[in-house]
Each structure stands twice: as C-alpha cells, then as structure tokens.
Simulated scan of single mutants.
Amino acid sequence: MSARKSLRPRPAWVVGLVLICLVAAGAVAMSRGTFAILGGAAGAASTAEETEQPPTAVFVGDSYTAAEGGEGVRWTSLVAQEQGWRELNVGRGGTGWTVAVPADRCRYGTCPTYPEVAHEVVDLAPEIVVVAGGRNDRGNDVAAAAAETFATLREGLPDARIYAVSPFWDSTAYPAHLIAQGRDVREEVRRVGGEYLEVGHPLGGRPDLITQDGIHPNAAGYRALAEAVNEALDR
C-alpha cells in the first residue's frame, strides 16, 4: 500500500508550488551573483583609483618660490594642493634667469641660474614644471636664458606640461623692466608648447602682505599669490 501511495501523482497545485519555489530560488541566486560581480568591479575600480599617484610638479624660482618669510606657507604648496599635484620645490633665494648666488652665500647648497636648474629638473622626471621668478635679474636681458631653460626642459621632458608665471613683485609699483621681461619669457615658453600664466600684480599696494624686510610676502601674501596662480591655471 505504501509503495503504491508513493507512486500516486501529485496534485497540480503541489507541482505548481514546487516550480514557483525553484524559479524564485534561481532568481535570488542570479540576483546575488550579479551584485557580487558589480561589487567586485566597483571594488577594483576603487582600489585602482586609490593607488593612482598624482602628477609630480617641480617648481623653479627664487626666494618667492622658496617662500622665504612665509612662516611655513608656500604659494607653491597651496597651488599643488588645489590642482591635485605632488610638489617638488627647487626654489632658491637670490637666483634668477641670469643670476646665480656664490656658494659662500647660498643657503641651499647650490644656487645656480634657471638654465642650470633645468637640467636638475629633467633628472627629476616630473609631469609638470612651473617656472616663476625674475625679480633678481633686475634689468638684465633674459631672453637667451629663458630660451635655453625651456629648450632644455622640453628636450628632456617631451610630454611634460610646462608653465611660466609672470614675474612677481612686492607691494610697490610694478617695474617697467619686469613687463619687458615677461614678454620675453612668454615668447620662449610658448615656443616649446608651454603656457604663460599672467597673474598681474597681486601684492601691489598691499604692504600688509609684505614682511618687515619690505621684499618678501608674509603668509597672507603667499596665499594671495597662490590664488592668482590658481586663477590663471583655471582660465
């Protein structure tokens, strides 16, 4: 009797219920599998994003680039932070396109001209180079030195973004010779496919942004320079 009962056909509603359960279970499994794949892909993308390094930017310049007088505030660091760059700073006080500082007066070990520093920059292999300065050159003709600097950078760093910043000045009237210098630098950086950042005179008429030496910016002054450079980069 029990054997015959086991062979008895199941009611239709039982069969239907079993089929519904099987379909539902399969849907849940497929759903879970899909979310696992998406989760894995998202996780991989997130990991890749986290391990991706920001581009390295080397800043070349004088005491303004080295941020003397800024109480630890650097316009270069503020710009790098805003732009998402990793900063390397080779600014050296007293230097310029045509001006070096003798070893016995150089606090940085060596204080060469910008054309000489350009070779050092190439060895660092950055993706970005920012050259700023010129106040120490006074009335010197910087065209040849600028041409050599940017030619060296472009030859050694063919894929790098190269920027030149118009010369900074303190809170006093902007000198005419810096306007002429800026024109020469602009022409030479553009010659190698670089970009000239015209930042104007952010410290002009603002002695409150200058330290007591009358030359170097204070912390607020360097923040003003950073804002001007970032605005020029974002144009």
Rank of each mutant, 00 (worst) to 15 (best):
G91E: 03
E231V: 10
P207Y: 09
G193F: 05
L38V: 10
Q181K: 07
L209V: 06
E155R: 06
D208T: 04
P167F: 01
T149F: 00
R74D: 09
V99I: 15
W85Q: 03
I179M: 07
G91A: 11
P167V: 12
T76M: 04
R105A: 15
W75C: 06
E231N: 11
W97C: 08
V73G: 05
V165E: 03
E50P: 00
S171E: 13
P55F: 06
E116P: 01
A224S: 09
G39K: 14
E187P: 00
A146C: 12
P102W: 08
E82L: 08
R235L: 02
G134V: 13
Y222F: 04
T95I: 06
E198N: 10
G139L: 10
L88W: 10
L17F: 11
H119G: 13
E195G: 00
W97T: 05
G33D: 11
R4N: 14
R191P: 04
P102Y: 09
T95R: 09
E227T: 15
Q181H: 05
G33P: 04
H177G: 01
S166R: 01
G214V: 11
L38Q: 14
V192M: 02
A12F: 14
D170S: 15
G96W: 03
C106H: 12
T172E: 14
I162N: 06
V142Q: 03
E231F: 07
V130H: 10
A24C: 07
A3D: 14
G16A: 13
G194L: 05
L233Q: 00
D213R: 10
V129E: 09
Q212A: 15
M1R: 13
L88R: 08
R32K: 12
H216R: 07
G133M: 08
P175L: 01
R186G: 11
G91M: 04
W97D: 09
A132R: 11
E87C: 08
A29F: 07
S6C: 11
S6Y: 13
A12N: 12
I37K: 07
T172K: 12
E127P: 02
G39S: 15
G26A: 13
I210C: 11
L78F: 10
A80K: 10
V90C: 09
A226Y: 06
A176H: 03
E187T: 15
V189C: 08
P11R: 15
N218G: 12
V79E: 04
A146H: 08
E71R: 06
L7C: 12
A220G: 03
F150S: 07
A44P: 00
S77C: 02
Y196I: 00
F35T: 08
E198F: 05
L225Q: 09
V60F: 05
G96S: 14
G156E: 01
T110S: 15
G96Y: 05
E198C: 04
Q53L: 15
P207V: 03
A103C: 07
G70S: 05
V60W: 00
P167E: 11
V28N: 03
C106N: 14
T152V: 14
D234A: 15
W97Q: 04
A228F: 06
L38N: 11
N218S: 13
V14C: 06
D170F: 00
I128Y: 04
E52K: 08
A24M: 12
P167L: 02
V192W: 09
R74P: 02
V58D: 04
G72S: 11
T95C: 07
L22S: 10
A151L: 00
R92H: 09
V130E: 12
D234K: 12
G33L: 12
G109H: 08
T113S: 13
T113H: 11
D141P: 00
